[in-house]
């Protein structure tokens, strides 16, 4: 029977969320809980002997000490935090101890989440695979470091594209925006904050929209014209579609996003605001 130890430094008068949200029992595991420890001055030495340790540690030194002392067998150490540990690297030590960082806040996990995580991680090679960069789709939301580099940039460029298509003579103070007959455009521009009737910076936003939509053939032409500079930051990326797919995680990238990426990559004219609006709405769902 494998043993699991849960240590939470942040317990105060009540049990910490990490301990509270962990299932009371799990088939095939013996669970040890270290609770009501207000500091880490006395981290129990026996933690190192458990097969799995799930720890909310304040001190990096104490955590590293625990990892260093852990040896023998297939040891797994998972560090958690109340603000998530996204951006921290997973590793395998020289002694074969797998060290993972839980990306979301541990407060957000339910007992069912933890059960799914533990059952999946103890399967042969899964934990080590994560440390080496292969995260199974079912565990992606817990251990995949979601570095979104390109998706946010694409969303910002879509915002500019759509605002540039607002008719200058039809600004909100004149009575509306250019929807091009598309409910997707209307939906997208409203969701991106245009025009927020109560917004403190509403007038500024309107002025910026007028500038973006000016009749000087730019930036409306700029955002449509593939030979122009507007989409160049993305067009110049190596394997744009692959990068977007990776950031999109395991799900399939939407058809509208694929359409836009192809247009960008092949320097074709992007003259369908309703499709760009749909791309924005898809990105909104993915990133929010």
């Amino acid at each position: 029977m494998l043993t699991i130890a849960i240590f939470d430094h942040d317990t105060g008068a009540e049990l910490g969320d990490l301990v509270k949200n962990f299932p009371p029992e799990l088939d095939g595991f013996s669970i040890f809980r270290q609770t009501r420890r207000k500091d880490e001055k006395s981290v129990p030495d026996h933690l190192k002997d458990h097969d799995i340790v799930i720890g909310h540690f304040l001190s990096d030194a104490n955590w590293e000490n625990l990892v260093r002392k852990s040896k023998g067998g297939q040891k797994l150490r998972i560090r958690t935090s109340t603000c998530g540990r996204s951006g921290e690297k997973h590793t395998v030590t020289a002694l074969g101890v797998v060290v993972l960082n839980l990306c979301p806040k541990h407060d957000d996990l339910t007992p069912a989440d933890w059960e799914g995580i533990i059952v999946a991680l103890v399967k042969n090679g899964v934990a080590k695979g994560i440390a080496e960069g292969t995260v199974p789709p079912a565990l992606a939301k817990y251990f995949a470091d979601r570095q979104h580099d390109v998706l946010p940039s694409l969303a910002v460029l879509c915002q500019g594209y759509l605002i540039a298509h607002i008719s200058p003579k039809d600004t909100p103070d004149g009575g509306g925006v250019w929807y091009g007959g598309s409910s997707a455009v209307k939906d997208a521009v409203q969701k991106m904050g245009w025009p927020d009737p109560s917004g403190e910076d509403r007038q500024l936003l309107i002025e910026q929209g007028k500038m973006a939509a000016s009749n000087r053939a730019e930036p409306r032409e700029l955002v449509r014209n593939p030979a122009g500079e507007y989409w160049k930051p993305l067009a110049g990326l190596v394997d744009l579609e692959g990068q977007i797919s990776r950031e999109w995680d395991s799900e399939a990238v939407s058809e509208d996003v694929k359409w836009l990426l192809t247009r960008i990559a092949e320097n074709e004219s992007i003259d369908a605001p309703e499709r760009v609006a749909q791309v924005y709405l898809d990105l909104r769902e993915k990133l929010s």
């Binding site: 580099d149 390109v150 940039s153 910002v156 460029l157 915002q159 500019g160 605002i163 991106m192 904050g193 245009w194 910076d201 500024l204 936003l205 910026q208 929209g209 500038m211 973006a212 730019e218 930036p219 700029l222 122009g228 500079e229 507007y230 160049k232 930051p233 993305l234 110049g236 990326l237």
Partner: peptide, 20 residues
């Protein structure tokens, strides 16, 4: 990649994204 935007775009898009 957005730092690679040209001056024509940088003249309006960063502030627009901020205001939105």
């Amino acid at each position: 990649p957005l730092s690679l935007c040209g001056p024509e775009t940088l003249a309006w898009l960063p502030n627009l994204a901020h205001s939105l």
